[in-house]
Design a protein around this nucleic acid. Sequence first.
DNA 1: TTGTAAGCGTTATCAG
DNA 2: CTGATAACGCTTACAA
Lengths: 358, 358
Amino acid sequence: MAGPRQSVPRRPTLRDVATAAGVSISTASLVYSGKQGVSDATAERVRAAADQLGYAGPDPRASSLRQGRSGVVAVHVEGTLGYAFQDPYAVSVLDGLAQSLDEVGMGMLLVPEPAGRSEDAARLVGGQAVDAVVFALCGPTRSPLVEQVAARGIPMVGTGAPVDDRVVQLRVDDRGATRRLLDHLLELGHEHVAMLTMPLHPGSQTGPIDLAQVEAASYPDTRDRALAFVDRLGPDRPMVQSASLSIDGSAQAAALLLDADPRPTAVVAQSDLLAAGVIRAAADRGLRVPEDLSVVGFDGVELPWFDGRLTTVEQDGRGKGRRLGELVQRLLAGEAVTDEDHPVRLRIGTTTAPPPRR
Amino acid sequence: MAGPRQSVPRRPTLRDVATAAGVSISTASLVYSGKQGVSDATAERVRAAADQLGYAGPDPRASSLRQGRSGVVAVHVEGTLGYAFQDPYAVSVLDGLAQSLDEVGMGMLLVPEPAGRSEDAARLVGGQAVDAVVFALCGPTRSPLVEQVAARGIPMVGTGAPVDDRVVQLRVDDRGATRRLLDHLLELGHEHVAMLTMPLHPGSQTGPIDLAQVEAASYPDTRDRALAFVDRLGPDRPMVQSASLSIDGSAQAAALLLDADPRPTAVVAQSDLLAAGVIRAAADRGLRVPEDLSVVGFDGVELPWFDGRLTTVEQDGRGKGRRLGELVQRLLAGEAVTDEDHPVRLRIGTTTAPPPRR
DNA sequence: TTGTAAGCGTTATCAG
DNA sequence: CTGATAACGCTTACAA
């Protein structure tokens, strides 16, 4: 027994509202966009009709087609969200970006790119109506997304990567900052300094690395921080790559450094999260920081469970995110935007001290 | 002196491609959608023309208008990103959701709602072309977003909140799970058990709370976990609310519990992050966990810097996120979807033991 | 397998 | 201040 024919109630459109209010569609549109004056009386009638019909405002799909703007910015994130957001630094950048975009009513579309799935990410941004793409976390030097996005005439903003003329960069002076960290350690008198790097490539393994490998690294930030290390201290200092940007992974990698002979008196970790792993590995071995081992990081994030204060390079992730948002806005406003440097500063904490007497 | 008139080169459209390939627009469209057979020869010609013209595929703005689908899911996040993503549990849910949506080519639009800015969030989802809204992290019982979104006929999925018939829920049995935690503590012989709750309201302050306040809590999960505590142990046990879902905030709140007389022998923290704060506060006071103090949490996240293993309720955040994604997909496929329970399980770790002898 | 034609719901332009 | 009209770029019955 068939039930009564139930006509699916079509959602009201601007036309319905206009008709109900006894005005033209264009007038009704003006009420919502506010781009031109509409008499109070008319506006009131339109709004009443809208309420009456349950009209919730112009359909974003239609207005984005018409205006050529969707109000959405794609945010590319290297790795899965679960991986990338482990890092408080990454989170702070995103937070700043979100704040900045929120101020102008724009939304953030997340585009995670797990290792080896760049095609998926490209398909996603290609199929989504976005006004700009932000490479928020320093990813590989090259990305297949760039061609795809550029072909659509969508502006891009990055933080050092992908390296391409069509991507406006907000760069950090990784080499200079690393140099300052090293100077600090050298002034303290350290001679045995080692480096713990972030992954050189998506999916690479923990282990010792050499200059040639560093030069071939996929990630410019990883590479530059390591190159500064080599430049300053020569190519023979121990360098170990951590397979993941996590405390656990770092602790494992740090073991290779700390169990070596001679043991370094200072470890330069390429990020604060890695530094945290080094500190844990040191604690596991009964080494005190900084008395027995100095540790420096990079980023300047909060490590709420850590009692001391890391000696590190403060990046102000939130500020960086905000600035990325501003660059996007200026790009969309048609302004000419050029690459910029994001300032960072050395912060001396409680994790560095002169090397132990031998 | 005016430069040569530079005509802005209009981006090629499907029409241009079709013309160049000598076929009709609809045929060209078919080549991209693949919904109907097109002869290989024709398809080839179309693709060649597209390459030639630099056409990167159909404009998502236009196809979303035509199809009534944008392929974007709005994900509502209670609080700023910087705040919400501090919690590894929140991140795992999002990670699972991202995975699940990625499999069907859908994107995630982040909609953070900082305390007191729900109007902004409502405006954002209203102005954005989204196919569904997910309330990924248990927010307040009521939300102004619901009306706005429902008025557009957009389906919603939540995790216990907002409470509304139009929101399909993936619930957790907070009361039952909390009861199991309490049973475990009681079996161990604890008599002095205290609870540390998550914030009861956006922006509320750290401090002792009573049953009436619990009943009026904005967040259903916070409320239910606390109610189970009261149900099981009576209304006179100490309850303290933490102003923030963070380790630091929790450590401060925990101080109120640990410095009381008599000091509880066990603390039930409403989340693992809060439990971490309790453990830190205990360490600050020279209390050993679990010898001097038992601590339980909720969520089952990794605390990489913590050597033990928390006794907690495992929620499988990633699985929950994945399930949310599946619910969204089924909703969009027009299937009838009903509320579900997400299973959780008690995990006994190393942070609980019999109370110390007096 | 291919083409024709009719929108999808807005907004911009321009005339009244 | 208001209204008519023409796109925006694409998808999809339906017809050939």
